[in-house]
Computed example of a mutant assay.
Amino acid sequence: MKFNQVFFIISFALFLSSCIGVKDLKYLQPSENLQYNQYGLVPVIYENYRVKKDDILAMTLITSDKNASRFLSEENTTAFKGGANNGDGRLRTSGLIVDANGYISIYGLGEFYVYGLTLHEITDLVQARLNEVLYNDGKAEVRMNIGAIKYYMVGEIASPGEKMELSNRVDLLQAIAKSGDLTRYADRRHIRIIREYPEGKKNIVLDITRDDILNSPYFYLQSGDQIIIDPLKEKISGLGGGTTIGDVTQFLSVGIQAITTYLFFKTL
């Protein structure tokens, strides 16, 4: 086999190995494993959330008793809004931070140990205390929720760092979009989420090139999640710089020049 034939075969193999296919870049490609409900829709599945330290909670108090407002700090409460007909109003306290010992403090109601509890369990605790203070069940209804979701994006993403969503729900694709999208080197088949539980941390791997990720309870982020975007092996190898034909051509051009120089000196 002639030298130029060997060189062509090697070059072509390097070209193929250094290119990233379209299937490695497209999001939510059709999968036969995607599950639908009886209405032909993809069901929304959440993992049961348990509150962690440094979480930010929000309390909404729905009441017909304006005197109930004295149990909420004026600095953290919106103005009382009376209803047009029945006089019902809503007070919202945000910024209830779970401290290092797992407690939140609500003005007029005291401290509550909430670490590891669900939002439903926390609601029951606060509601029971509020009923004791008001001496009459039914005067006020408490609703506890997540006041903000804080998560961290690192790796092959346009805008890495700490992110904050003033919402109680954000999914993985929304988080990626808000961070400027993934780079062309990102391994979309191997997105890692480090999630903390009261018992310890869990390493979760998701493939966002498949649409059956929508069935995953881990598709929706939780406060404190660390999302790690690993690079593709093509970037690690350095062949062609990742994806483009121009990059591969540049690599081959350098190789040809080196071989040409070698052959020139060999003939001297």
Rank of each mutant, 00 (worst) to 15 (best):
N4V: 13
A13Y: 09
F15L: 10
F15N: 02
S17T: 15
K23S: 15
L28R: 11
Q29N: 09
N37P: 06
G40S: 07
L41M: 15
P43W: 12
I45R: 10
Y46G: 02
V51R: 00
K52F: 02
D55M: 00
N67W: 09
T77H: 06
T78P: 08
G82S: 12
G82P: 08
A84P: 06
A84Y: 11
N86W: 13
R90F: 10
L91A: 08
L96N: 01
V98R: 00
D99C: 09
N101S: 15
Y113N: 07
G116C: 04
G116D: 04
G116F: 01
H120C: 05
E121T: 12
L125T: 02
Q127H: 06
A128D: 11
N131E: 14
E132I: 12
R143I: 10
K150C: 00
M153F: 01
E156L: 07
E156V: 07
I157C: 04
P160N: 05
E162L: 09
K163T: 05
N168C: 02
L173P: 01
R189Q: 14
R189S: 10
I191T: 03
I194L: 13
R195F: 00
G200Y: 15
I204E: 02
I204L: 03
D207T: 08
D212Q: 09
Y220N: 05
Q222Y: 03
Q226H: 13
I227R: 00
I228H: 07
I228C: 06
K233F: 11
S237T: 10
G241F: 01
G241S: 03
V248H: 08
F251P: 00
S253P: 03
T260Y: 11
L268M: 13
